[in-house]
Nucleic acid binder design. Structure first.
Length: 690
DNA sequence: GCAGGTTCACCGGC
DNA sequence: CGCCGGTGAACCTG
């Protein structure tokens, strides 16, 4: 999945392909060679080579002066004209808006990420941040006192000093974005766990979001038109706040994000992004266009009556979309899809850049005026929602999947068929092996120690101090109510046969087999790989590493046997960072040894195995392994269960870090394996693995 | 289905 | 002008 070169998707696609159409009317990301200033004398100064431009007034120019590109003055930038000094390649090179905040950030999170910190005013008049989230005012003492509104005695987000340990700064925007999301979700999962016990008010997403914002743990602050560095088309989100903290779509509720800037005496406004979430009467037929309904008129969620109570007005987001239409500027589109696995039933998918092609008003169902905007997707972008439409179809009708070699490689052994496809070459399938959904112990596990069982009736519940399984897991159940792993641990103890609880108990996530539509597919250069038709949420159980449990590694030098051998001797950095975040709540930080202990277990999947034997290595993986016990108590021979590190869109290859024998990282044993050249093409690739 | 809760833009005061 | 505080709108989530 992360086997993408630096700034891959945008960069590669936009650079190489004739993607002129993607050159934005507003030069690339807003802020490109444009300095916003908060000093009132000259609200907007264009520092392009051409020099400052003044407002033309009157009709809307294709390039409003405040969005002017370097070549805008000399020759009016036409649609498709690449920006002069470096083209529009998806890598943001905006000028830096020097703010006090900027200085403040510089030694904390995104340290040299000035490029990605374009702090712009959305009003043009004022540039400020809400006091309660301003680092300048967020001394503990001060925040405690006056400003923080307290209609409810809500806990104020805890601001900590050293953020580097939690979310290390990175020059790679993708890494920054992923780090922010990973921290957010770790925080959110932990808050869910805490809330369940105290029965406190819910909305862990908002709590986690508030803490992230209070600590400036976010990427791409400031609004920009066009692509967002580090956020790739096709990325998925489970909460609106997630899109907020990575700078994709700022409003926590509103569907239209826009910015207003002041040019001379006039306010100019432009839409930035829209979320098509189904609250209004939108048509979502074709994947290439979208009819979006304007906001206002009381037609949306707020009031329970779904009926409008008033005409929509040409203001705010509606006005912004209208202006974007007139200028032909690009608008990011986030579409939503149903997901039954998710409690909210909804996932947000970033579908890339669109342009408004029509706008009109019509009478809504309640007889009031509504604004309608028809947006078309820009050509040549990576696939977004298209992938979903395809996989949805496959799930309904598996025979519609083309290039299938085998409809079910597990021959009915898995809960859901695993199809085998090759869209790359003529290879007819992997070499022979026996499919097995469980590990085979060549020597019987000596279960001398009897399994402990809890006495919970029906299901184990959080906060039940009498649950021995919860105690064994350190006091709380390891999974959230939606079944997500809360944090990585040295060992997870699931409920077992001796427990009184039923199979519906949440502490039995991994023992019931896979719940995901997998496919084994032919990669271009790394043999077979594994991916999913379903979206996979961070913390979800994916599958077990099955095979034959051996005593020692034995393989011929010439054989490829070792590529099917799993050893629990290495854990990658990302795995260790996975738990980071709860420190922001004041939780003690977890030491590496608490998360990871090397284990003697060796699993050989050469002759016997399941889908996980097809999972390739990556130095930037999206999956990690976690030891779990559920049917015996041999701590040194646990089940090896895979979980998602982050949200994984459908059809993204699943990879984990095989480890390395170069002595770096967390390699606890010297291995005899021959290192192999790594082809993961991650920016952090170590070059070899195994 | 309702309601508690959030952010941000906007506006007015100093 | 810039800072501060209040207010209201908004395709949220449980």
């Amino acid at each position: 999945m992360d086997a993408r070169p630096f700034s891959s998707k945008e960069g590669v696609v936009l650079d190489v392909k004739p993607l002129r159409s993607l050159a934005p009317m507003f030069p690339a990301p807003l802020g490109f060679n444009t300095t916003f200033t908060s000093s009132g004398a000259t609200p907007f100064v264009c520092v392009s080579p051409i020099g400052a431009l003044s407002s033309t007034g009157g009709e809307l120019p294709p390039f409003p002066p405040y969005f002017a590109s370097p070549n805008a003055g000399a020759q009016p930038a036409k649609y498709g004209t690449p920006a002069a000094n470096g083209s529009y390649d998806g890598v943001v090179r905006p000028s830096v808006f020097q703010t006090p905040e900027r200085a403040e950030f510089s030694d904390t999170y995104l340290d040299d990420d000035s490029e990605f910190y374009v702090h712009t005013s959305t009003s043009g008049r004022k540039i400020r941040r809400p006091k309660r989230f301003s680092g300048n005012h967020m001394d503990d003492s001060e925040a405690e006192g006056s400003d923080w509104k307290k209609p409810k005695q809500r806990k104020k987000p805890h601001k900590i000093k050293d953020l580097s340990s939690i979310c290390p700064s990175s020059l790679d925007p993708r890494e920054s974005v992923e780090g922010v999301l990973m921290t957010f979700d770790a925080l959110r999962r932990r808050l869910v766990q805490l809330d369940e016990v105290t029965d406190a008010s819910k909305r862990a997403d908002l709590k986690a979001g508030a803490i992230m914002l209070a600590n400036d743990l976010r990427a791409n602050m400031g609004k920009r038109i066009g692509l967002v560095p580090g956020v790739e088309i096709g990325d998925i989100f489970y909460f609106r706040i997630e899109m907020c903290v990575v700078g994709l779509h700022a409003p926590s509720m509103a569907g239209i994000d826009y910015m207003t800037t002041r040019v001379g005496d006039v306010d100019e406004t432009a839409a930035i992004s829209i979320v098509s979430a189904g609250g209004y009467e939108n048509e979502e037929g074709d994947v290439n266009f979208l009819v979006y309904t304007g906001q206002g008129g009381g037609g949306a969620s707020k009031h329970s009556e779904k009926k409008q109570v008033d005409d929509q007005k040409l203001e705010r987001g509606n006005l912004a979309l209208e202006k974007s239409f007139q200028r032909g500027s690009l608008v990011r589109v986030i579409r939503s899809a149903k997901d039954s696995n998710c409690i909210t039933g909804k996932i947000y998918i970033y579908d890339g850049l669109y342009k408004v092609q029509e706008s009109w008003t019509e009478k809504g169902k309640a007889g009031f005026n509504v604004f309608k905007y028809k947006l078309f997707r820009e050509l040549g972008q990576p696939e977004g929602i298209t992938v979903w439409k395809r996989t949805e179809e496959w799930k309904l009708n598996p025979s519609s999947r083309g290039r299938v070699i085998l409809p079910d490689i597990s021959s009915g052994m898995e809960n859901i068929p695993v199809c085998l496809v090759n869209e790359v070459d003529d290879v007819k399938g992997p070499s022979h092996f026996t499919y097995a959904t469980r590990v085979k112990y060549l020597k019987p596990i000596s279960s001398l120690r009897p399994l402990q069982g809890c006495r919970c009736l029906s299901v184990c519940l959080p906060g039940d101090t009498s649950c021995s399984c919860a105690r064994q897991n350190g006091g709380s159940l390891p999974y959230s109510s939606s079944g997500l792993l809360v944090s990585r641990k040295a060992m997870i103890y699931e409920c077992n046969n001796s427990c009184a609880c039923t199979a519906n108990c949440r502490n039995r996530q991994t023992q019931k087999g896979v719940k995901i539509h997998f496919e084994v597919f032919r990669t271009k250069d790394r043999g077979w790989g594994l991916r999913s038709w379903d979206p996979i949420r961070a913390g979800s159980f994916i599958c077990e590493y099955t095979g034959e449990v051996e005593d020692k590694v034995e393989f011929d030098e010439d054989s490829d046997e070792d590529q099917y051998i799993f050893q629990a001797i290495y854990v990658d950095e990302k795995t260790l960072n996975w738990n980071h975040g709860p420190e922001l709540l004041g939780d003690p930080s977890i030491s590496q040894s608490e998360i990871f202990k090397p284990l003697p277990i060796i699993i050989n999947a050469k002759n016997v195995g399941n889908i996980s034997r097809f999972m390739n290595h990556s130095c930037s993986p999206n999956v990690f392994w976690q030891p779990v016990l559920h049917d015996h108590s041999e701590e040194e021979y646990p089940h090896i269960m895979f979980f998602a590190i982050k949200h994984i869109p459908p059809m993204t290859e699943l990879t984990f870090d095989y480890g390395s024998s170069d002595g770096n990282g967390m390699d606890f044993f010297a291995t005899t394996r021959e290192p192999k050249r790594c082809l993961c093409s991650s920016p952090k690739c170590r070059g070899v693995f195994g």
